[in-house]
């Protein structure tokens, strides 16, 4: 990348990327009681990485989001989702009936939806970054 160019873009994206990440976390953890949720938060989180890749190049993005980490995160999110669903079996409930996970029904619901949305968010963010980098790094 030509580092002498894009001065304004570099400065502004350095200001905005932390705010985008913070907003993604807000959407993630506020998703039970407001607009938002795991998918939207994952997309916003990935948008921060994509903005970084647009301005600073895919090579620099690979230093913070290497291939093995993204693959691991994709699988981790799915495992979190499935694990939350399967944990209900241990308490004698159906798949994803996570009301039984907590001390009472409401606590179990809160814990279950939190874990499920977290899994969705992690997977969506990792997949989005992977898709973008796969296109950006394509040769020829």
């Amino acid at each position: 990348m030509m580092t002498s160019q894009h001065l304004i873009l570099r400065v502004v994206s350095k200001i905005l990327i932390p705010l985008i990440l913070l907003f993604a976390l807000y959407v993630q953890f506020h998703g039970e009681s407001g607009p938002g949720g795991g998918f939207q938060a994952g997309v916003i989180f990935a948008a921060a990485f994509i903005l970084y890749a647009l301005v600073f190049g895919p090579e620099n993005t690979r230093r913070v989001a290497p291939e093995w980490a993204l693959s691991t995160l994709m699988a981790t999110g799915i495992l979190l989702y499935l694990g939350t669903g399967a944990a209900s079996f241990l308490f004698g409930a159906n798949f994803l009936e996570y009301g039984v996970l907590g001390a009472d029904f409401v606590a179990g619901q809160l814990l279950g939806i939190f874990l499920v949305e977290l899994g969705v968010g992690i997977t969506v963010a990792a997949v989005m970054i992977t898709i973008y980098l796969a296109f950006a790094e394509r040769q020829g």
Binding site: L9, V12, I15, L16
Partner: peptide, 8 residues
């Protein structure tokens, strides 16, 4: 956010 993103 708009103050930074839109002019950029």
């Amino acid at each position: 956010f708009m103050f930074f993103s839109n002019p950029t």
